[in-house]
Structures are given as structure tokens and as C-alpha cells.
Amino acid sequence: MYKINNPVRITQKEDDVFLLSLPKVNIRIEVNRNVIDFIEYMQLKEKIEDDVVEEYIVKNQIENKSDYCLLFNQMIDTKVVVSV
């Protein structure tokens, strides 16, 4: 199980560019809308299970599962999400 490493700060820089900041782990990075949507989805969940990617892509009818698996792994590596 995982959780988002709060606090998360998000703001819009351009039409599809968002500034994402996680001050706790000193991350400040520009990302697109898809990443923000995925993070906001996880933020609303009380518990983030291991199959969150599967759950998210089914719910949102997303085809590129491998991209989201990669994204989720990157989030673990960079401590955007941490295991609990």
C-alpha cells in the first residue's frame, strides 16, 4: 500500500504545463495534465493499493497502461508516493 507524500502543491503554468511541488521531498517539476489527473485521483483515495494503475486505467478507459506503470514507478522512485 502507498500514500501520496503530502503536501502536494499544484499550479497551472501553461495550457498543458503544470508545476508540481512536493516540498517534503524537495521536488519541483513541470508535468502535463495526465500526471496531475493521476495524482489527484490518488489523493482522493484513502488507501492506494498496489493495483492502483490497473484500477485507474480501467476507470478512465486509458489504453497506454505501460506508460502509467512507468509513471507510477517513477513516482515511487522519486518519493512522490511512499509505501505505508
Binding site: 503530502n6 503536501p7 499550479t11 497551472q12 503554468k13 501553461e14 517534503k24
Partner: peptide, 20 residues
């Protein structure tokens, strides 16, 4: 510390100063 910083309202300045 980070529980307080995660409360509503603490993100507002960041959103305002950095928003396009």
C-alpha cells in the same frame, strides 16, 4: 510539520504566485 503544511489554505500562496 508536514501535516500542518498539508492543511487547506497552505497551498494558496504557491498557487497564486506561480499560476500562469
Amino acid at each position: 510539520f508536514w501535516d500542518i503544511a498539508s492543511l487547506k489554505g497552505y497551498e494558496e500562496i504557491f498557487e497564486k504566485s506561480e499560476h500562469k
